[in-house]
Design a protein around this nucleic acid. Structure first.
Lengths: 235, 235
DNA sequence: CGATAATTTGATTTTTCTCAAGACGCGTGG
DNA sequence: CCACGCGTCTTGAGAAAAATCAAATTATCG
């Protein structure tokens, strides 16, 4: 019964604006499972029996078109949930990007727990609402933003999921990033190089990025107008 | 208490695959309101006080970037809900595309009703789950599909929301369609003309489309492979 | 340390956008 | 009921963005 007046169905729950909207541990045992990099938690169209919460590592959620094109819908970081809110069958594929540890629950157990706990229900509905809002933000990104804006947005988003807000690790490959941003690997690579030339970032290695001018990057990501960054116009 | 074992939080509710996932009338009075074409139901960032269900007409949900670019996230048809599942403030704008009639409820009233009805909760969660799945399908569309595929997909989607599955009315402007598909009005227009030249559709007027080869169109929409349509290669 | 895979970079093509003009349709008022 | 005017839609030409094809370079992992 704890906190049962917080939020409601129509969206009263405050949309967490802060870093990594972690979903605190569910009040159920759940079982821990470990996945190797590249291993699938579940596949698109498979009967949906479990719900997962990431404990360690990074997971990617993707959908494949019949001809092999792939779209990555979301990267999950610790605290994020997977497998929630779909039909009898999973509607997407979840795979580990890095070695990962997840907790899993049988859906039926979770459903039963939700029946009995208004607090749990509110947290689940708030979570789903945040997921929908995140999806909407990404629709704007994919529908109306340039490659430069997409990459900048991605870096800014990543920064909010890491310890250090300026030294980022990019555990995913360029192909993963491309499929997430609706670009090709070449365009992602070229855009990162461009940001480096402009002094916005440094690239110590292919899987590390240092944000040198985070504010300018955020301006790029937020919209087309990046007036606050005069750009030294490096070669 | 009716139907309280149908579906659950983790997604047991069958994702309606059929036509127009209508959300049957909520078990609350609600008040009817009428909106003229172009009029806003609510604006992005405005305090969120009501939830709406479309009774008649078409509504568009959109978000604007600071520099004026617009993305339409979704078109709502009768039965669809707007204003659900967001924070204290609306996270998008809802405007009438055509003259429209909607029912509205105070969010607090709806929240209270949901507290007391497991059935209502299930229907709301199922609705939210379908919205999320629809958003994911659109992420694939915007991220990985060509202009031709996007337009074909749009027409196929529209057909599922109309009486006649082959004679469609397009109440929205080309600009609306462009902002929905992440294209420009010129590209939308050119793509429709191309489909007409190929004998896939007829265009009796700017706001009417006749699907001449719905199966071929569906093949175009579903993926890149449209082998079942040999194309007569019209001029 | 070496083989393989991932990434970067370059050249070229394709797609889509932008700019521009003309056609069409619709609503209004005569 | 028809003419007029405005806004929308279509079409064309050229430019820009991103994709594709191709090769060289650099990581990564056994």
């Amino acid at each position: 019964m704890a906190g049962s007046q917080r939020g409601g169905w129509s969206g009263g729950a405050p949309a967490a604006p802060g870093p990594a909207q972690a979903f605190s541990a569910l009040p159920l045992a759940g079982c821990h499972r470990r996945f190797a990099a590249g291993e699938a938690l579940f596949l698109d169209d498979e009967p949906a029996e479990s719900v997962y919460q990431v404990s360690e590592g990074v997971i990617r959620l993707s959908k494949m078109l019949p001809d092999g094109r792939r779209a990555i819908l979301r990267f999950l970081y610790p605290g994020d949930l997977a497998g929630l809110s779909f039909g009898r069958h999973y509607a997407l594929t979840a795979e580990a990007v890095t070695p990962a540890v997840v907790r899993s629950w049988r859906r039926r157990a979770l459903d039963r727990a939700a029946e009995g706990s208004a607090d749990l229900r509110h947290r689940l509905s708030a979570h789903l609402g945040r997921e929908l809002e995140a999806a909407h933000a990404r629709l704007v990104l994919l529908g109306r933003m340039s490659a430069l804006e997409r990459v900048a947005d991605f870096l800014v988003w990543l920064a909010r999921h890491q310890r250090s807000a300026t030294r980022l690790s990019l555990p995913m490959t360029r192909l993963d990033i491309a499929d997430y941003l609706g670009l090709t690997i070449e365009t992602v690579s070229r855009t990162l190089s461009q940001l480096k030339r402009q002094g916005m970032i440094a690239l110590p290695g292919p899987h590390e990025v240092v944000l040198l001018r985070p504010a300018a990057l955020r301006a790029l990501a937020g919209a087309g107008d990046e007036d606050q960054a005069p750009l030294p116009r490096a070669a």
